[in-house]
């Protein structure tokens, strides 16, 4: 059902070509992945197999283009005037943590140029490199896709425990976070789990914002192109009622909730 997750593939992403990042694409006018206007680097490769993935073409460890860190830094500097005091660079994906050592170099260089850094991750890894990378990230956008491990498995192919551990670690070191939650009818809109999700995080002091991202179908054609079966073809986008319901539950536990 899922294409197999090759561990050797993920190792290669970290080790090979230390001065280049394997990217899927670049968005120079990102306004949805972190504060302000951001250059968003979508990296290639992910271990999650989320059924609703809008960028299935980023999943493979082998695809994408190698772009040197120098080139990415140069581009970010060219964009600096647009960043103002809020914007900067976001690395999203794919899963950025798979290229953590390279991103350490990238983020350090961005900081040397006074450019704000943001990491958008599913949080599946937590080793020393990830910890170092987090120390160079001004903001973490953490996707916690389901609070129930069984459902998380069904939805993403993996357990949610590593992600929750990473969240806990971030709370312990005071890492600023925005949590993101993709709202999929029939999959992640159960009121009891939304409540459990909210209760799990409500006392976190590092969470500045919670973003609810309603499930959409914009990526479906990519699954077709890749010849991959899309299992949510029967799933509808969430109704206004469902969105309001989720918003209400979250708003009772967090002061800053955005329905995107």
């Amino acid at each position: 059902m899922y294409s197999s997750i090759s561990e050797s593939g993920t190792d290669m992403l970290v080790i090979k070509d230390p001065h280049s990042i394997r990217i899927h694409s670049l968005e120079t006018f990102g306004t949805h992945d972190g504060p302000g206007i951001r250059m968003v680097v979508f990296v290639q490769g992910c271990q999650f197999r989320c059924l609703y993935c809008q960028n299935p073409d980023t999943l493979s460890m082998a695809g994408g283009t190698l772009v040197s860190i120098d080139e990415l830094v140069r581009r970010a500097i060219n964009q600096k005037t647009y960043f103002g005091n809020k914007g900067g660079v976001t690395v999203s994906g794919g899963e950025p943590l798979l290229q953590r050592t390279k991103l350490i170099t990238f983020f350090k260089e961005l900081h040397d140029n006074n450019i704000n850094t943001c990491l958008d991750s599913n949080g599946r890894l937590l080793d020393d490199d990830v910890k170092e990378l987090l120390s160079h990230a001004d903001l973490l956008l953490l996707d916690v896709k389901h609070i129930n491990d069984e459902w998380h498995h069904k939805l993403t192919g993996v357990s949610n425990k590593p992600t929750l551990r990473l969240a806990e670690y971030c709370e312990s070191i005071g890492q600023r976070m925005w949590l993101r939650y993709v709202l999929v009818p029939g999959w992640s809109d159960q009121p009891e789990f939304l409540l459990e999700w909210a209760q799990h995080f409500e006392n976190y002091k590092t969470i500045e914002k919670v973003e609810i991202i309603p499930y959409h179908k914009l990526g479906v054609h990519k699954w077709e192109l890749l010849g991959m079966p899309y299992q949510l073809s029967e799933t509808k986008v969430p109704s206004t009622e469902i969105k309001e319901m989720a918003l209400n539950i979250f708003q009772q536990h967090f002061s800053n909730v955005i329905l995107k």
Partner: peptide, 9 residues
């Protein structure tokens, strides 16, 4: 804010 930043940039 983002449109202001775009023009500023």
């Amino acid at each position: 804010d983002n449109l202001v930043a775009t023009m500023g940039g």
